[in-house]
Each structure stands twice: as C-alpha cells, then as structure tokens.
Design a binder for these strands. Sequence first.
DNA 1: CTCGATTTTTGAATCGTGTCAAAGTTGGAT
DNA 2: ATCCAACTTTGACACGATTCAAAAATCGAG
Lengths: 343, 343
Amino acid sequence: MGIKDVARLAGVSQGTVSHVLNHPDRVSPGKTAAVEAAIAQLGFVRNEPARQLRAGYSNTVGLLLLDAWNPGFMDLARGVEDATAERGWTVLISNSGRDINREQTYLRLFAEGRVAGLIVIPHDESADGLHRIRTGGIPVVVVDRAESGEHKLSVAVDDVTGGRDAARHLIELGHRHLAFVGDELTAAPVHDRLAGVRRAVDEAVGEGLDVRLEVIPAELTVEAGREVGERLAKLPAKRRPTAVTAAIDLLAFGVLQSLLSHGLRVPDDVSLMGYDDIPFARQLSVSLTSVRRPHYEMGTTAAHLLTDVLTGATPQDRHVVFEPELVVRASTAAGPANYKEGT
Amino acid sequence: MGIKDVARLAGVSQGTVSHVLNHPDRVSPGKTAAVEAAIAQLGFVRNEPARQLRAGYSNTVGLLLLDAWNPGFMDLARGVEDATAERGWTVLISNSGRDINREQTYLRLFAEGRVAGLIVIPHDESADGLHRIRTGGIPVVVVDRAESGEHKLSVAVDDVTGGRDAARHLIELGHRHLAFVGDELTAAPVHDRLAGVRRAVDEAVGEGLDVRLEVIPAELTVEAGREVGERLAKLPAKRRPTAVTAAIDLLAFGVLQSLLSHGLRVPDDVSLMGYDDIPFARQLSVSLTSVRRPHYEMGTTAAHLLTDVLTGATPQDRHVVFEPELVVRASTAAGPANYKEGT
DNA sequence: CTCGATTTTTGAATCGTGTCAAAGTTGGAT
DNA sequence: ATCCAACTTTGACACGATTCAAAAATCGAG
C-alpha cells in the first residue's frame, strides 16, 4: 500500500511512480498509463505526512475560528476558503469556541502539523501562544485584534468608530439614556465597541447634552440577551434606558425576543441596535438596526495577506483595517428629546 | 530544529528525547528536566508528519460539512467537537458548501493526510468517493443519508416521517392545497421529506379528502426562498396554495420575508412551515412552525460511533436513525376546510 | 563487595515519499 | 552506421521521529 507496491505492479521503479505524481511531463505516456492503472487497481492513496516530511512544505493553511456559531465568522471562513482555493491552497478549519484551552490545543495541532500558514481569530489572552507559533516560523494573520509590527500580519475592523457611530445614531434620534449590553472583558472587539460608545457619549456631554450610559455585562449569546431583556422589561419605565445597543447581533436577538414577549414595543418603547449585521438581522420580527462589518472581505483579505507572504510576494499592506457601516432598520426610532418631531 | 538538536543541547541521545515526549515514565527526572529545558530554550515543535509516518497513526478525525451556513450543521459540528474532545481526539473541519468538487478535494485531503477517521455529510453523488476512501481503510461515518451494511457507519434522521408529520399537520389544520418548496434532486434528505409529504397527501386522498400538492423547485438558500415567495404572492388567491412547507428553515425565512413584504399575512393568508428548527426559527417576525432534528445529538452520536470503531470497541449500533419532532408555532393556522372552527 | 534484577539510556533501523545524479534509451543529423 | 543531444528511467539517500534490542547504569539482597 505504498508507492513501492504501485511500482512493482506497474513494472517500473519507485522514482518513476513519484514522477508520475509530481512531474508528469518527465515520464513517457506508456509508463504513465501503466502507473495510473496500477494506482487505480490498488486504490493507492498518497501518504501526505511522508510527502510533507520529505518535501518540507505543505499546501494547507489553518483557520482557527473564535466562535463558529456567530454567522459573521462563517462568512469570514467562506471568504478565506474562496480566496485560498482560488490560489491553489486548501484550508483546514477548527473552532476554539472561545475556550482558551481548545485554542491552545488547536494552535499546537496546526503548528505540529506544519501547516504553511495560519489565520487566527484569537481569544484575548492568547497573545503569547500566537507569538510562540509565529517564532516557530509559521506566518500568522491575526484577525479582529489591533496589531502592529513590520513582521506581523493582521486584519481588523475599526470597532471604536463602529461603536461611536452606533451611539451617535441613538443620540441623534433623541435618546438620552443609553445602555450597552456586553461584557467589557469578554473580547477585545467588544471592548473597542464600548470604548466607541463611551466616546460618543462623552462628546455629546461635551456639547451640553445630558446623556447617560449604562453598561450591562453579558455573555455573547442569544440566551444571555434574553436574560438582559427580561431584566430591562421589569424595570419601571422611568429607570429603563430608552435605547439599547448590544455588543453583537446575537445578543440583540435575545433582548428583542424577551422585550417583545414582555409586552414592550420596539422601537416605540425601546430602541434596539445590534452589531455585525449578520444575515438574519434584517429578518427578525423587527428588522434590526446594526453596524455592518465586512466579514467576507475580511476573510479574503486575510487569505491574500497570508498567501502573499507564503509565496514570497510582499503584500502591499500588512495591517488592514476596515471601516464598519451603520445600517439603519426598523428597530431604532426617535427618543424622548425628539418626540415632537415624530414617532 | 529537530529532536536531534534538542538531544545535543540536553546532552542525551535522540531516543531519550523521544521518550520524554512519549513515555515520560521511562526516563529519569534529571534527564527529563534537561530535555524539557532544551525544548523550551530552542522552541522545539514536534514534527507531526514525521511522527505520524513512523508511528503510523493519528489522533485527528476529519469532519466534512455539507453547508456550514445552515446553523443546524453547526450544531452538529459542536456535538462532534464536544464528544471527540472528551475522548481525547481533535477535529479538523472543512466545508464542501454543496460543491461536489470541493467535497472531492477535501475528501482526498483528509485521506492523504491520514486522519484516523472521518465524519461526512455527503453530497448526493459522492457515494463512490466515500467508498474509495472507506476501502482505503479509514472508517467513515456518513451523516444524513440512508445507509446500511455491517461494515458501514451512519447517523441519519427519518426525514420521510418528518415530511409526513409536516404535511399531516397542515392537512389536519384544514389545508387542501399544499406546496412543497425545494428541489427533489438537490439532496437526499430533501428527497425524503418530499416523499413523506407525498405519502401524507396520498393517505389523505385515500381517506376521501381532496388534497392537492404542488412542488416548487428551489435551491436551499434564503435568497431562493425570497423568489418563491414573490411568485406565490403574485398568484391570484384562488390558485395560491393555502399552506407552504419548505425543505429547510432557511428557505422558509426567504418565503416568509417576501410574502410579508407583498402584504400577505402569515398564517392568515398562507400557512408556512420550515424544517430543521434552527435556533432562529422561533425568533422570526412570525415564529416558524418547523420539524426539529436533533443536530447536536447527531453530532455526538456520530463521534461516538467513530471513536468506538477507532479504539477497537464495537459500537452497539452501526446505524442510528433519529426521529424528528413537529414543533408548532405561530406560522401555521387553520385552513379553508376548518374555517368554521377558528382563526 | 558481588551478583542478579531492574531501570535507564543508547544507537541503529525504519516508516513512505521526493530528489538528484547517474545510467539508459531514443531519435535525428551526419 | 555512428554520434550527440535530449529525453526517460533508475536506485540510493534523506527528511524527523519512534521503536526496539542491546548496552549501561543503578539498586537491593546476600
């Protein structure tokens, strides 16, 4: 069950079989046919580990996702796949599920497996693990994390601006009591979004507006959103924020669901925003205002950065930052300060 | 940068370094410490292809998904990951995206990479490819496809029954003009669902009911659903089915969206059902009646089947079939034949 | 202190493939 | 018929880690 058996059956040497596999032009049609027949007959499958050991390189890149259940990351994965496939590489995906141990396990797996390169959406505390691999000689593209350095590669979104845009939108609508749902410590992108929200609030206060911000810690799941919505619904109307912006769409889904089920109207009683603009956002009972991140393009960009480096080409940029885009839908409407002007 | 360098630095032989890595109990504490220090100092990373070549086995299993954008399959993936991780294996995921060429590419990649085993949600026409791999000696668990045979492994759902339950539900509600959205040829599970629907219709006709079924071919995407909804909305009310059952929830999402945007009411004008019961189904503008498939459990079951075989244990079952469950929500209501009784 | 038993360490052989220098073959020009 | 160039084919070696038999070191009992 190796090249040797194929060679014996085809009546040629091992070297010839190897050439049929790797340099078909160097071998005569007759022998090629004989070898291919033998391969088919034996059901020979090339032993990739052996190939890789001898050849010293791999055509596979690894993609380590943070949370495959966030549809945005699946779009990113599709971008990575499309762009790498186009350039002749294959992708192996794994998913840390925001579990730092799994992340370490998979990073080691990829590093030991000698993939040619890695695209990683890292957990927050894993900088050292990435660095260890990077020094191991495997190029790494870090996604969704502020990075810098000439020998590093990254693709990110300016989530501070995104958060600022979100909060501004609400403030301009006339809302003065805002809430941000999400845990500042969970993930760097969430941290940035909150920082942006805070900046917008500070700016508004600087302009003399009486804007108040409340931060409601929560995990990044629909379930957690539901609990937050419940808590909000039970608050007396005067103490309840009139506008809520969630760290990610999934959270907003949960909040929306429990607000509605407690008889509150969105956006009439509470304006609600998500973040990410995942495909389902527009198809909710109340279509969700959100901040769109170009996930697919992030994926293709990360793949291009990586394959450029792998093929020896120097990419023009080593750190790409995308700008998010506010997408206004039905879930946000005028708040107290603008009531005179319309619903 | 290999075991040899570690050995030199630590002042021991290669064999000892290897033992530290694989049989720590066989080596004295002193040498162990020296070796570990050398490993840390050099940043040594074990070369997995070389290990695998010599040792002849791998601790990794492959998971080939059909369509990672269908949330149900991601639940399945989570099940696979949890169950395999628990038993000490790691999972590499790839996604064919219903593209048979990609599927072949990834199957070959996994086979050549000598993963220990595979869990595959196959494209319809790929039976031979799977077989080729199976004979290559790698155990394969086939998901979502009727299989049999003592040396084969599979996990599936009885989608015929699921389709029958769905259609029955609609017929019992009083609907007599049904439509099934989905292409009979796209995928085996869809084929089964339609077969189930047809059976329910035939049974109803046998009982003297005048039930009519229309089949509307469509790809399995939200976008395709939107087009179908559009076409349905433009039909004169008399020629329009009063109940629509979609091959998967994603399709139903699209149908729902365009029905609503054309001013039709769900379920008042048209009853609508999905299939899969993905998490978002209940959170739509009109919560969706659907047929639940236990995706997570399918994943854990597939993983257990596979790891059992890999470890030499004989699994009690080799073919597991789950029963789907009808989940009635707001999108289906009484049809013409029952109008007297309710909404 | 010695001997036998047990534990620790060593070094050579090996896994399956790709490469490369060398040997073999072919074919056209003279 | 001969020769040279171009093309094919061969076979030995190397990649890096594991393994195993054998050598070396250690330990305990007498």
